[in-house]
Structure formats: C-alpha cells, structure tokens
Amino acid sequence: MNRRRSVRKDTQPRAPRRKPTGSGLRLPGLIKAYFTRHAQNLFSALGRMVRQPVGSLLTVTVIGIALCLPVALHLLVVNGKAITSSWDSAVDLTAYLKTGQSGDAVQKLAAKLRQRSDISNVDVIPADKALEEFRELSGFGEALDALTSNPIPDVLVIRPTEENLSAASVKLLADELAAWKEIDLVQVDTAWVERFHALLNILRRAVTLAAGLLAVGVVVIVGNTIRLDIQNRKNEIEVCKLIGASDAFIRRPFLYSGFWYGLGGAFIALLVVNGTLLLLQKPIRQVAGLYGSNFELMGLDPAFTLLILAGGSGLGWLGSWLAATRHMRLIEPGKDS
C-alpha cells in the first residue's frame, strides 16, 4: 500500500520526461563530470590493485625488473663517457730522444717545442733521473749497476693544446715530431681510448636495443595482466554493454590499471637502480682513489627519472589499451547463451 502511494507520487514529475536526458548539465558541469569520472576511474583502479596485493605486486615487480636493465645500462654508458671525458684531455705524447745528447740540448729542444702554438706543455724527464727512479722502483738495482752506461733515453712528455686533442691532430703532431733528428720514437697512447669509445658505442646501441625489447616486454606483461583482468570481469563488461556503455567507457578502468602497473614498475626500477648506485658509490670511490682520480659515480638526473616514470606509465597504458581493445570485442552479451 505504502509502496503504491509512493509510486503514484512519482508519476507526477514524470510529465516532463520527454526533455532530452542530461539537459540539466551545462557545459562546465559536463567538463567537471568528465574529470570527476576520470579521477574516479584513476583511484578505483588503484583500489582494485590494492585489494589484490600479491598479484599486483608480482606484476609491478616483473615490470620493474624489465625496466631496470635499460636504466642500468644507460647509467653504465653515461658513467663510461664521464670517465673517458677526463682521459680525453690527458692525451700526452711521449717522445723518446736519441741517447747521447747533452742536458742543454735537451732543454733547448723542450723550449723550442714549448713555443709551438699547438703544444701547451712539455715536461722533461732526464735520463739520469729516470734511471734513478727505475732503480728505486724496479728492484733491479744491482743488475743496473752492472751497466756501464745509462740505457734509458731522455724523455719529453708533450701535451697538445685543447683544440689539438683530436685523434687526427695528435697523430699529425706525432708524425711530424718522429721525423725530427733528435727524436728517436714518439708514442701516442690513444689507441686504447679509441677502442674504449668504440666499445661504449656498441654498448649504447645495446642499450637502445635492450630498451626497445624490454619496452615490448612491458607492453606484453601489462597486456597479459589486463587480459586476465578482463576475463575475471566478464560479467561486469557484459552488463555494461547491455545498458549501453560505449567501448571507451568499458576500456577506461583497464587503461588506468595499466597506467598504475607501468608507473609502479618504473618506481621499482628506479628504486633498484638507485639502491644499487648507493651500494656501489663507496667501493667505486675507493677504486678511483687508488687510481688517483676523484671520479664520482653519476646517478640518474631528474629529467631521466621523469622520463622513466613517464615511459613506464605510458607503456602500461599502451599495453592495456591493446589488450582491452582486443579482448573487449570478444565479450558480447548473448555470445555464450
């Protein structure tokens, strides 16, 4: 009885029902509703993940590990470059002089070289001093005593100016000096630096390749998770389709899930990489100290950190978009009845 009355009561305001639905919303209201809806989806997707902590954590961890590798390789390249940049400016030419020249002649030669515009510094290592040093350090003292003359030549350590440090100009200079009559041999130790650079280049390629492959991996991992998610929520999707939900509406919560998976994975990757850096910082400083370098391990700069976070969440989004678009189609009401 009571119910009947309440129904009757509502039949009255039903008269203007012909007005189009949603006409009560003006444009600002619609925009607000749009953002509210997205925010709701964003947080309800997070809520769903939190309610299944183990599964979500596994997925996020796998994504994190996948993202770790390219990030770590990137750091390796960045640090490798940092190390060699300090070597680049330390390319010296070592000129071994012909033996039997007087100290004066050697000093004169050094002065002549210092005047050149393509040379910034020349150090002279006289033969006597070199022999003394060798005697002390090598432990061949007695054997050396047996020698009648000093077999070690005078040495000039020549440093080219900044603008003449390129491999080509250093080589040019070395060839020129080697032709001088006072100079026996000129040694340039840049070959291994070049080799190291070549290796770094290969590594950089490898980083790009690994990043590409692992990006595909992340897309697949997220896609597969979302696919299972969709199968678990088959009923819900079916009902939504029956009451007129658009594909975009049904897809949206899955897109946000994918976004969170990707973002979570990126966080884990950053956590692991930064943790590893922290652990390596001290031993590397020690090693650097032994080599007389004050090299510091370079960490992730803020821009790259942002790139990882954006990339991770973007890949998650892409993976879920692909999976949702494909698998949503397969769920149609009445398909199985």
Partner: peptide, 26 residues
C-alpha cells in the same frame, strides 16, 4: 546508477535519479 554513469551524468544527478527509481520500485 550504472546506466546514468555510462551516459556521463554527474554524481549528484545520478544520486537523485537513482533514489527516484528506487522509490518507484519500493
């Protein structure tokens, strides 16, 4: 409220209409 949410109708309006519909079915 799902059919209204699907159409993008705002939260408050959904609440109002859902209560009206629930009233109709007692």
């Amino acid at each position: 409220g799902l059919p209204l949410v699907v159409q993008g109708i705002g939260h408050r309006e959904v609440g109002r209409r859902v209560r009206a519909a629930l009233d109709q079915v007692g």
